[in-house]
Amino acid sequence: MTLLHWHYPTEILVGEHASSQLASVCKTRSIQRPLFIVDPALTDTQAVRELVLSCQSADLPSSIFSEFSGNPTGEQVEYGIACFLEGNHDGIVTLGGGSSIDIGKAIALVARQQQPLWQFEDVGENWTKADANLIAPVIALPTTAGTGSEVGRASVITDTQRQSKRIIFHPKMLPVQVILDPVLTVELPPHLTAATGMDALSHNLEAYCSPSYHPMAEAIAIEGMRLIKLYLPIAHIDGGNLHARTQMLIASTMGAAAFQKGLGAMHALAHTLGGRYNLHHGLLNAVLMPYVLCANRHYLHEKMLRLSHYLELENEGFDGVLEWILALRKQLHIPHTLSDLGVNVQDQKAIAAQSVLDPAASGNPIHLSQEQYENVFYHALNGTLDL
């Protein structure tokens, strides 16, 4: 039997007001001068001010870096590195969604290395070029329930020269501590709650569908989907429901733990489209989800049958799962087509060609050719399901 190499996440603290433990966690992790990587929309919030003040009051000099976009770029990583070095920081605290966590992990990896960012792209053994002893520790406090980047060993960074997203990887990029505090998510507006929640669903779903063998990840994925089925609609309607918010944070973390099993064509296309159009990653996955499922339909009958039973869907099998996803998207006001997001048909061939080469494509239940990616793109653009 082929040797298998499985990894599981880091230490996770979960609960209401868990973020109040941040200063003590920093000290436990030997972080004396944390750099806060904060989503730009959160920099002036009371929650961020209180967390920074709690560290400063505990004799942990801190500063904030927030000069990055929703799809962080290589140039923005360089700005963050300069801030990290100028402030003589020795660790990073990320506050925000996937963009803040991704750029925070990239800064932590590269800041003290001799090699530049793109040398650590997830290709071959590139990660071995890094001196692991120079990687700064990261504490992650997600304020959205979607990417699960807080338990990931990689970052997705946009290369503006190539107009593409590139995956930066190192095992020690994994945050040393995760704090899941639902109080930090209650201000997330409904449309972002929906998009990030569907992102969490896409991670669990694609991990479940991946043909690679990882029964632990598969079990996590189906339970993650059950939690999303129960709690995403509640969190969308009632953002102040802390129980629903907690369960969605957990489901998001579960999705990222599960997708070490693999992702697929949904993410291959979302990475490509996000790099070209600077669109929200979770929203792209939400739009693409039913079209990619249909492309994989004939290879998923047994898995969809099991999933429909576990989720207690009204109808069983593939059709039951597809009906649930379409109904959930409608309930969350997710656009039905890529056209609704401003994507146009002129890019069809280029997007398909780039998606075939995306690292996520290798985890799809079947290898999709460039022509098949063009077909999925066409259906997603026009809103037709290839049944």
Rank of each mutant, 00 (worst) to 15 (best):
L3Q: 12
W6V: 11
Y8R: 11
H17Q: 09
L22H: 05
L22A: 08
S30H: 14
R33C: 10
L35W: 06
V38K: 06
L42N: 05
V48E: 01
V48N: 02
L53V: 00
C55E: 03
S57E: 15
G70R: 09
P72R: 00
T73N: 11
I81K: 11
N88K: 14
G104F: 07
K105F: 04
A108Y: 09
V110D: 00
W118D: 07
E125G: 05
W127D: 00
L134P: 02
L141T: 00
T144L: 06
T147A: 13
T147E: 03
A154E: 05
V156Y: 01
V156R: 05
Q163V: 01
K165M: 08
I167A: 02
L174D: 02
P175M: 07
P175H: 03
P175R: 09
V178S: 03
P182N: 06
T193N: 03
M198E: 07
A200V: 05
H203K: 01
A207K: 04
S210I: 01
P215K: 08
A219D: 08
K229V: 08
K229H: 11
I234L: 10
M254D: 03
K261F: 04
G262R: 02
L263Y: 06
A265V: 12
H267L: 08
H267Y: 05
G275Q: 01
H280V: 11
L284R: 09
M289K: 05
N296E: 07
H301T: 11
L307T: 02
S308N: 06
L311S: 06
G317E: 04
V321Y: 00
L322N: 04
E323W: 04
W324P: 01
I325D: 03
A327G: 10
L328T: 08
L328V: 10
R329A: 11
T337P: 09
L341K: 07
G342P: 06
N344C: 14
Q346V: 13
K349F: 10
K349P: 00
S355Y: 05
V356F: 12
D358P: 10
P359S: 03
P365E: 00
H367V: 14
L368S: 11
Q370D: 07
N375D: 13
N382E: 10
G383W: 00
L385M: 12
